[in-house]
Amino acid sequence: MSERLVDAYDLVIFDLDGVVYLIDRPIEGAVEAVGELHRAGVPLAYATNNASRRSAEVADLLNGLGVPADPGEVVTSAGASAAVLAQRLPPGSKVLVVGAEALRAEVRDAGLEPVARAEDRPDAVVQGYGPQVGWADLAEAAVAIRGGAQWVATNTDRTLPSPRGPLPGNGSLVAALRTALGREPDLVVGKPEPGLFATAALRVGAHRPLVVGDRLDTDIEGAVRAGMDSLLVLTGVSGPVDLLSAPVERRPTYVAPDLSGLFEVAGAATVPPDEVEGWRLEDGAGPRLVGDGTAIDALRLLCGLAWMGGDATRVAPDSPAARDALHALGLA
């Protein structure tokens, strides 16, 4: 039996939104893929920038979707941010929380006192995504930070995926404060910082983890910073055009349409590839895509062109199959 991509790794670290589920709906094939990994005895972890749920809540959500998960397998930016603050501040210090109740609970469990107003004179402000966060919350945070409070952001994701398309994420709310204050947060805890991935690997003693994500700017860059291989799946935020224009620090080891890529023959999902079955690029008046094959294999081939400085967005089709592949990739 040929070795599968996943067989080369001793831990698979999943992002959640856009990889396993969209808000609260499982992505097609995700339940089956995770089930196959469990049956094969592959250690799993889940690392999410979403600070609106605690680890136990995330595990409950996954189990409710048919994805077996234990709270110990889940690393959230909310829990990591609270842990960082507990290291930086004396026990009982006041922290102004901008975000969901899950973030407040994590701060409380870390031995700190969550508050909601600048007049409480907090030592720090921690800012995470929460669907009810509004202008009044941002105003209190702005006053507290100008008064000397440390400013910690759980993450700076500009958007979060949903069945209706990308919606404003915590990074958009951080940007509002950044504009008002004229400065950056003192610390960003979540991806693309490598801490969540390093924590997940440390928990199980993994030496060769694989990160699976849907975002180049968080999941893939975070994996690169952590020195880990990564698989980009095209079920969430980043798409083919984004991948073609990705800078070096945001380039994945592999790309696949979805989690089925974990079970491809080793090397079949590598990007850029050594060779691609069915496709080739020829140059005349300009680059042309020649042959017949899958759209994802065409994308992998085009990444080789783009990452060497070529303009893969101007590749012309040389056959109906090539035209269909470019159209599927949004490059027609």
Rank of each mutant, 00 (worst) to 15 (best):
Y129I: 02
D120E: 15
R121A: 15
V125C: 03
G128R: 03
A86Y: 06
P114Y: 07
V133M: 10
G130N: 06
V126E: 10
L138A: 01
K94D: 05
A105G: 01
R88K: 11
V98K: 08
P90N: 11
R88T: 07
V126S: 13
A144F: 04
L138Q: 01
P131K: 00
D109G: 12
R104A: 12
P122H: 12
Y129N: 00
V133Y: 10
A141H: 09
R117Y: 09
E106R: 10
V95Q: 03
G130D: 09
E140T: 03
P91A: 15
V126N: 11
Q127K: 11
R117I: 00
D120Y: 02
L96C: 09
D137A: 13
G128I: 07
D120A: 15
A124K: 03
V133C: 11
R121V: 11
A118L: 03
A110D: 10
Y129E: 02
G111N: 14
V126Y: 13
D123V: 00
E101I: 10
A139K: 14
R108K: 15
L138E: 00
A141C: 07
R108G: 10
V125D: 01
V133W: 09
G128S: 07
L112G: 09
E140K: 04
A116N: 01
S93T: 13
P131S: 08
V133Q: 08
G128W: 07
L103E: 13
V126D: 11
A136P: 00
A144S: 07
G128Q: 07
L138N: 01
G99H: 08
R108T: 14
L96D: 07
A116M: 00
Y129W: 11
V143Q: 00
G128D: 09
A118M: 01
L103T: 10
R88W: 13
A86Q: 09
A139Y: 14
V126I: 14
W135R: 02
E106T: 09
R88S: 07
V107N: 05
R104T: 06
W135G: 00
P122T: 11
V133E: 07
K94S: 14
A139N: 12
A86W: 03
Y129P: 02
L138C: 02
R117C: 00
A110T: 08
R88F: 01
R117H: 13
E113S: 15
A141R: 09
L103G: 14
A116F: 00
R121C: 06
W135Y: 15
Q132D: 14
E119V: 12
